[in-house]
Design a protein around this nucleic acid. Structure first.
Length: 800
DNA sequence: GAAGGCGGTCTTTTT
DNA sequence: GACCGCCTTC
């Protein structure tokens, strides 16, 4: 063997040693630095680890591993010292030796890492900081979501694609409102063209990079599509006038920018030497084009994803991006990570067995050397209530047996509607829980209102937000006035705010000029002080001067929560300012705060420290893991959902991928349940066991289904704690002192016939009382509101 | 212009 | 079954 060859071998051995905590596939992915690379990363296969360590590797060593460069004058002594080091050197000493191999390492600022969530971006940054041991270096790396990175580009070059300084972002709700406005302008009936449908079509078009003109020509002679094209055109015009972008615009306009302006494109292409994209299976066409453009200079594009975890097709993701990556980039290397570090083999076998029924996939098989573990526990109960009690009882028995803590459990359901039963049952049983999803913080009315104020202060042209707040609190500015303002703005070719500011100059606004101009004064005053005071101060000032806070205070008790939410919003602003106060590159600004607020959803609400069971949809659980997972509602019609059962194979395949995600969240144990009859959306349905459950081989499963057994055997009476309602009916004899056990050991109890007073329902008579768990369920005939069933612990009842 | 009634809707939703 | 948004009503 030549000296050169020995040198190169020794180098690889040393690197392999330094990265020995990774498996061979992971190492291959870390060391493969140049040219397109596709990493198919199965659930729990250490994807983020690979991503982070690869970025750090590139920053430290560049292409050192595969480089065939041998320094001039390498001699026997040098080579044998390396060979020796490969045998007995470790830790820092090893690192020091490796540093000699650096081969055109990459400056951190030339490194781009794109994710889908802020959480993922933050995780990459944090782990990168500890991996390279230098926070400043990790900060220089461009790591962010598709949207934040595009906004960063648009902030510099936005005016080239038609945006004026201070442009802002519309979220899905805002943009629906703008679509409604566009439709009103065009006299298109919302019933014939439901906004939701139109919004989806427009969003789809944008994800396929079709501008209104292209969409129109694609629509051809299709009547409906032609109408939608007209709406799209109108919508886009008003969006530009309002100087706002929707989420899809952020990507599409950036692509347009890079496409049209060669010098901008060249600039970024020359800058980004390495580009990594996470969750590649969830990218859409526009995002594909964007990455191809940004990575187009050096073509060192790495994408990581799992085609089996593609669950966002309904939002425009095209699984083809990952399926065809190595066809589009014909020199791409493909690496599969199939070793799983999360779950037991039983759980992985189940997941593999389910997903292998999909046709549209690359194919892979997860394995672990963690051992088989417990069987999957399948439970059938009578209805959703007994299902929830089953979950509660399991959790309680595990916790009291010290087999687990509350925070080890997650309940993952297919749709949010399933959560209410579980939530109520948890609440009644005193199980601590946290629910993720549901109404987002930013979607609350009061938050949208204050955000709208801030946006209007920043950007007077923001039409929808102006309309949102101009009469909140009431300033006696009605629809007719606003229509007149709108007409004048149209005639004059100026914004509504311009008209409002100068209302006294227009005859049509004679009556309302004072009110309009007072509003303009308010906004201008706030805009004037915005420069000089903190964002926190501006928010407080806005709430006070606008009368918004007073409006809520006047609203009394029921509005208290809104006031609390506003306080939380203010804390968010304080956090934002603190986080950036020492950052010379990015000082805190109202613009920045609003942008962050638009792009950052419920900031990592999920912290795994609190000892509470987690409740969320399967979709939101992607990327997370839990020791013990419950999957309630494993029924055809729920999971897979009715729509997909009735729909195409492709839809069922997406649901199956979702099931795959659900199963692979579990580390130790998996409980799957389904019910005989389910009350959902006010209707009772009798769903058969999910086809996905039937795809799990019997030998992996332990079934606990007395209900179905009873049917089969059609014999013995049985007593299961779950299949019968668990309360006993108590008949109360008015003449005895026998009473139902006092719930929660406190409160007064009532008997049949007692007359009580309820805080909101008023006077009523107790019709019946049932012990339910540790509580009592009263049926009460109220004088005013009729008969209601109330839990004693929730209803504040007083005996009269 | 505010409040209450009714009727339509209800997968999933990283930004 | 529950919630939201539109429409009616005063």
């Amino acid at each position: 063997m030549t000296l050169e060859q020995r040198y190169l071998d020794a180098k690889k051995t040393l690197f392999d040693k330094a990265y020995s905590s990774l498996n061979d596939m992971q190492k291959d992915a870390v060391f493969t630095v140049n040219n397109p690379l596709l990493v198919i990363a199965g659930a729990g296969s250490g994807k983020t680890t690979v991503l982070v360590r690869r970025i750090a590797f590139i920053i430290k060593y560049g292409n050192a591993y595969h480089s065939t460069y041998v320094p001039y004058g390498v001699d026997e002594e040098h080579v044998s010292s390396l060979e020796k080091a490969a045998e007995n050197v470790d830790g820092e000493e090893l690192e020091a030796i490796l540093s000699q191999f650096s081969s055109s390492p990459c400056e951190p600022w030339r490194m781009l890492a794109i994710t889908f969530t802020n959480k993922a971006a933050k995780e990459i940054k944090d782990r990168l900081a500890s991996e390279v041991g230098n926070e400043d270096i990790s900060k220089e790396v461009w790591a962010g979501t598709f949207h934040s990175i595009c906004m960063r580009i648009l902030r510099t070059h936005g005016e080239k694609v038609g945006y004026r300084a201070g442009f802002s972002i519309y979220d899905a709700d805002d943009s629906k409102k703008a679509i409604a406005t566009a439709m009103k302008n065009l006299n298109i009936d919302e019933k014939a063209f439901p906004i939701k449908v139109v919004a989806n079509i427009i969003s789809d078009a944008k994800n396929r990079l079709l501008n209104p003109e292209m969409f129109e020509s694609e629509a051809g002679n299709d009547f409906r599509l032609k109408k939608v094209a007209a709406i799209y055109k109108q919508y886009q015009t008003t969006m530009m006038q309002s100087n706002v972008l929707d989420f899809d615009d952020i990507i599409m306009k950036t692509v347009e920018l890079l496409d049209k302006f060669e010098e901008v494109r060249k600039n970024y292409q020359a800058r980004f030497k390495y580009v990594c994209v996470d969750e590649y299976q969830d990218t859409n066409e526009a995002q594909f084009k964007l990455t191809a453009l940004l990575a187009g200079g050096y073509r060192n594009l790495m994408v990581v994803g799992d085609d089996d975890q593609s669950i966002y097709k309904f939002r425009g993701a095209t699984i083809e991006n990952i399926l065809n990556f190595d066809r589009v980039f014909s020199d791409a290397k493909v690496i599969k990570l199939e070793q799983n570090y999360r779950s037991t083999q039983t759980i992985l076998d189940a997941a593999n067995a389910v997903i292998k029924n999909n046709v549209g996939r690359r194919g892979k098989n997860l394995w672990t050397n963690a051992g088989a573990g417990e069987k999957i526990y399948v439970k059938k109960t009578e209805d959703q209530n007994s299902e929830a009690r089953f979950i509660v009882d399991k959790i309680n028995s595990y916790v009291s047996a010290k087999k687990a803590e509350f925070k080890d459990f997650a309940v993952l359901y297919r749709n949010n509607a399933q959560s209410s039963t579980i939530e109520k049952t948890f609440a009644k049983s005193g199980i601590p829980y946290r629910m993720l999803g549901g109404t987002r913080f930013n979607d609350r009315k009061e938050i949208r209102d204050i955000v709208a104020y801030l946006h209007v202060i920043e950007n007077h042209d923001d039409r929808e937000r102006l309309l949102r707040i101009i009469n909140v609190p009431s300033r006696k500015i009605g629809d007719k006035t606003l229509e007149a303002v709108e007409d004048i703005a149209g005639e004059q070719g100026c914004s509504m705010f311009d008209v409002i500011e100068n209302a006294d100059k227009y005859k049509a606004l004679e009556k309302s000029a004072g009110k309009l101009m007072a509003f303009a004064d308010l906004i201008n005053y706030l805009g004037g002080i915005a420069e000089d005071i903190s964002i926190e101060g501006l928010i407080r000032e806005t709430l006070d001067r606008s009368g918004y806070r007073q409006m809520l205070i006047d609203g009394g008790e029921p509005e208290q929560e809104r006031l609390d939410n506003l306080d939380e919003f203010i804390s968010g602003a304080i956090d934002y300012e603190r986080s950036l106060e020492n950052d010379p590159d990015l000082p805190p600004t109202l613009f920045g705060f609003l942008e962050e607020n638009a792009l950052v959803a419920d900031v990592d609400k999920y912290d795994d420290k609190a000892d509470a069971v987690v409740l969320m949809t399967v979709h939101s659980s992607k990327g997370l893991e839990f020791p013990i997972v419950f999957l309630p509602g494993m029924e055809d019609g729920i999971f897979p959902g009715m729509q997909s059962v009735m729909g195409s194979d492709a839809e069922i395949e997406e649901e199956r991928r979702l099931a795959y995600v659900a199963i692979t969240r579990a580390k130790r144990e998996l409980f799957i349940s389904h019910v005989n009859s389910r009350l959902l959306y006010g209707k009772t349905s009798y769903n058969p066991e999910s086809r996905f459950l039937r795809e799990i081989p019997d030998e992996l499963v332990k079934r606990d289904e007395p209900f179905s057994q009873m049917r089969k055997l059609n014999s013995l009476p049985f007593d299961s704690g779950y299949d019968k309602p668990r309360y006993e009916k108590i008949t109360i004899n008015r003449n005895t002192s026998a009473r139902p056990a006092a719930p929660m050991g406190k409160k007064e109890t009532f008997n049949e016939g007692d007359v009580v007073e309820h805080a909101t329902f008023g006077r009523g008579e107790i019709l019946s009382a049932k012990i339910v768990g540790a509580d009592t369920l009263y049926e009460i005939a109220f004088d005013k509101v009729g008969t209601k069933k109330l839990m004693a612990s929730f209803a504040k009842l007083k005996k009269i």
